[in-house]
Structures are given as C-alpha cells and as structure tokens.
Amino acid sequence: MASFGLVSQVERDFVERGVDVGIRADGRARDDYRPPRVELGLVSQSDGSARCQLGDGTDVLVSVRCELGQADPAADDRGRLAVSVECSPSASQRFEGRGADDLNTELSEAVTRALTGPQSGLNLRQLCIVPGMHCWVLNIDAIVLNYGGNVVDALLIATRAALADTRVPRTVVQEMEDGAMDFEVDDDVENAQPLEHVHNVPLCVTANKIGAGYVLDATLTEELCASARLHVTVNSSGQVCAAQKSGDGAIEPSLLMAMLQAAKEQARRLLEQQDEQIRRHETEIAAKRARGEPVKRPSIFV
C-alpha cells in the first residue's frame, strides 16, 4: 500500500469505539490472538530456522547459524548471540532503500533484549569452545516478509522455534605440544547438540493501548490507532521476564496490571502450543533418522 502508515480520523474513531465495546474490526474480542502458524526447519543452509505467520498479514522467517568467533574478553567463558532483523521491501513500499533502517534497529534491539538478559534462559557457556579464545556465535537473522501488525510477537515466536530447531556442531579440543589449545569441528550432524535450556527462552506478548482499553495481537490499523504499547516477555514458568513500554501515551496503573495479566495468560497458551509443536517436530526428525533418510550437515560445512 502506498498509503502505509496513514489512518483517517473516522477509522481511528471506529477502532477506538470497537475496542470500547469489545468487538474488533475482524470480530475478535480484546484478548483474542490470531492463531500463529509456525513451521520449523525450512532453511537448509542454516542450523535452525522457523517461520511464523499471524493471520493474513504478518509473516516472518528466522534463521540461526552457528559461526566460529573470538571470545569476548569481558565474558571469556561464554558464546555470543548476534541478532539482525530486516524488513523486506516486499512487505511495504515504505521499506525500500533505507526506509526500514529505524524499524530494523528497533526490532533487532527488541529481540536482542529478550534473548540476552539474565532471564533469557539460554546457557551461553555451552557455546564456549576454548575459554578466552574461541566460541560459537549464534547469528540470528530474521526477515519480515509481510507486515500486518504485531511483528515483535511474531519475531519471538519464530526465534524461539528456530532456536529449538538449532543444533550446535560438536567440537573436540586438543592441547598442542607448546601448550596452545586447538580444536576440531565434528561435521557429523548426529553428534551436534541442541541448545541447552531452550525451553526457558521467553516469548513476547504485546498489548496495545487504544482509547481507554487495550488489545492483544493488534492488526496494522489498530497499531496505528494505539497511543501506547507494552511488550511483555514471559517464560515457560509463567514469570514476567521483562516489560517495555513504547509510544507517547500514558498507561494508568490499573490498565497496566490488566495488560500484564492478559499478556501473561496469552503467553502461557502460546508457550504450551509451541512446546507441543517442538516435541512433534523432534519426533518427526528422529523418525526420519531411524529410516536412514539423509539429514543435513552443520551449516559451516555447507
């Protein structure tokens, strides 16, 4: 749409009053979430990947690649994550050229914060190969193929699934005669390890304040009418890991509590669904392997 980002005064009024009475433009109630469609293991060149679609609009693809890197001197016994989100110009004309730069940075930051805080759940020590020298860097690359609102939630749904799909190649460390450490990467995918504690990675549920109320899983038009937005990240134990507000409107304390509560409940449902799907996916792969069908090699050998 050439007019992406515009909304008329009467459309805004229609959305606000719809939220007031609890009937949104697509018939959902305020707390209703569009059922996310998630597919795992789509990208053969990566070590883990997933795609998440929300309704007709939002569509994101996330790929995880393990790359060898230098250990960070400040945290020498840990690996690193590098997140990059890109909005494709096919999603909207507005993203052509440098049009999406600000949004890309904002979204990359949002995903990074959810994954790298103390609450992230991932065991980064697992990614260390030789302390102080070599480690794995998980490159998390996301592309927004279509922008239909609620992209942050979709990004985290896809990222969490992609991380669960990820296998880190095994490394064998040897000490050389001169005392230096050397290592070899095992190219057999059978020996590659899943990420530890990946089930603790949180999901994000965004609540948009529209008029005096809020909605979950806003569409594009609803996002344009929102005065404030609250991203809530929740882990599988139902704990709120982080909450971040954006937009220039204010959120009253009572509304804030309601938003947090709704986000928590929705996150619980999403996490249950996703864990179930990840289990199914793993059984399928195990069955494939048992039948002796070809399994892909770790991406650094491709």
Partner: peptide
C-alpha cells in the same frame, strides 16, 4: 464531516463478519 454515527454492537458484528467473508 469527520464524525461517525453511533454504531450498535450488532451492526459492528455484521461489519466484522462481512470483512472476514471478504478476506
């Protein structure tokens, strides 16, 4: 004018249903 008429809940439901049918 930039003012909407009052829209009853039932009308709102019908609008939503038509939109979803189109989609």
């Amino acid at each position: 004018a930039n003012v909407n008429e009052d829209i009853s809940n039932q009308e709102r439901e019908t609008i939503a249903r038509v939109c979803n049918c189109l989609q």
